[in-house]
Design a protein around this nucleic acid. Sequence first.
DNA 1: GAGTTTGAAACT
DNA 2: CAGTTTCAAACTC
Length: 656
Amino acid sequence: MILKCANVPLYLLCLLEGIENQRGMLRRCLQFEEAPPRTTGYSDSPLNLANTVKSLKLSTSGHVELKETSERLMVNSLQSAAPSLHPRSSEKFPMVSKPLGIGLHLNSIINVACTATAGEKSTDHHICVRVMKSGTASNNLVGNTKSCPMKLRAVEKDSASDEEIISVTKASIVPSSVTNEFHHTAEDHDAAPDENGKSNSHNADNFEEHDQPSPRKKRKKTSTGGGDGCNRCNCKKTKCLKLYCDCFAAGIYCSDPCSCQGCFNRPEYEKTVIETREQIESRNPLAFAPKIVQRIPELPPNHGEDGYRSTPSSARHKKGCNCKKSMCLKKYCECYQANVGCSSGCRCEGCKNVYGRKEEYAAMEHGVTREMVGNRKLESTFDKELEIVGTKRDLLCTESINPHNLTPLTPSFQYSDHGKDAPKSRFISRRYLPSPDSAILSSNEKTKSPPRDLEKSDVLLEVSEELPDEGSYEWQVDYNVGIADSSSSRNDSVPSVPHLTQHPDTSVPMASATSFRRDYRNLSQNQLCPGSARLLSNSMRRHGSPLAPMTRLCEATKSRQGLDSGSVQLVDILEDETPVKVSSPNKKRVSPPHSHIFELGSGSSGKLKSGRKFILKSVPSFPPLTPCIDSKGSTSENTHKLQGDSVKSQNVTVNP
DNA sequence: GAGTTTGAAACT
DNA sequence: CAGTTTCAAACTC
């Protein structure tokens, strides 16, 4: 791994602080509290490998080390085992790299990070990181509003390069294929619960026995608020294998603090978890994608000072809420819980969301759109420029992508864009880049006038916002963004991805996707306006994709920095566009639910004005289920089915 | 702590 | 795709 995370510790700390406050989105914080050592035999199984890895240490040198401490890092990655097999690596589906927020359990990473930071204090953390086969992971954490910021952050790293992480894992933790072993373990332990998670009931029962929440676990989630701010689930019937389970939804394993019963969301049941996850994703690729997305409001640079920003947060719930009785004033409302306003996508009734009412949003959106139209002319100019820039960038990108050719961006280059492009990029970025990062950026601005409740949480908000990521390509873009930000002043603490950078090698998996990525890069580089370090984090998280985040990051960072300089606002266009529920990711891109983005500025419906048609390409819907999973031999019908589905989706994908 | 309410997720 | 059921969190008492 080549992650440089000199700042990580601070970052993590910040996150931790923020976490407490933000329950809604972040509620799912990793547990940093000391967990009693598990009796459950992690050690017994292959999983134990993970056990060996106790902590992840982020060294200033930029290397991530797994250090053996008391913590457990569970890294399960099908991919890791056989990178070559990794779907994403396949040329056919270059973009596939983790398009969806397929969640990994980022916990681990996050935890790790935490551990590294604060962790040094306490040793007994459980860190469970799941690296989903397809790079699912990163999204999840990110995506889930409930997941804690820390997680997310951590995730990013992982996501940034699943491969990397994995490799790390392997190196330090598991010499051989981690994935297989893990799966193996899972099987050994139990018959994986069937789709419904019922099959393993007996196992579950067993599991319950030892996993049953200890008395101290028993605390209610709700009560948590204070302490570490990490509430855990209390599932009784779903075995923590459905989205009802916040832990599962967040891509993290349940842990001691959870009061769940018959929980299968444990490292021991890795396989089951993965399979279940895949099933869910097969139904809804975005199931684990971040729910909160940065939105329009920031659009026009000029608006920064006035009105639009007034909204507590430009972030919005991607899917929107459906509140009938709570008037979006209670945590029943996902929007409210995430500290974001309701949007046009919400179907709520009597919305009184203090963070922004649906009507307000609609009005604002409308206004923005108009304004955008007015500026369209200007945009076109930008677009042209963009393309030009993009060309340059492409070159760079290409190089970067290609390990051999990789050329580190020069600082000069980075900055070059700065002054000039910044405005543009900003503008453009919105349209094209949906990254959660943008959300982060916005958060910065938010800082200026934090929403009432939110005050505390710049970080929190950021986190929540960051969460959103969905589109496959988004991830990639995000990477870039994230990178750029590293330099950003705001969160130096954030483990800036940028550090991650430079490893062309890491990009290996990406290679296939090169062209595709390239496009993104262009976008990202040109368009992204990462202003803050946060972006990095975001990008990191999101991009769980195996793609070599680093490379991009570097590039992005470079370009980004320049761009960022002025503007804080990046809007996740893509994200916004991304429909919450999409049968196939591709579809999503093509026809965004709300089409905010397009509406907003570009007006180019299907394609971005900039002319980059990334969207379509990117979307190679699901990451094909990795054979790896099956490879275990445990392959279940489901698995096959899933794989088949994934394949289909992929095929369907790309639009010319 | 038990019971109720709520809305998302899952199911049909 | 819409309607219904299930679920677990949020909330109330």
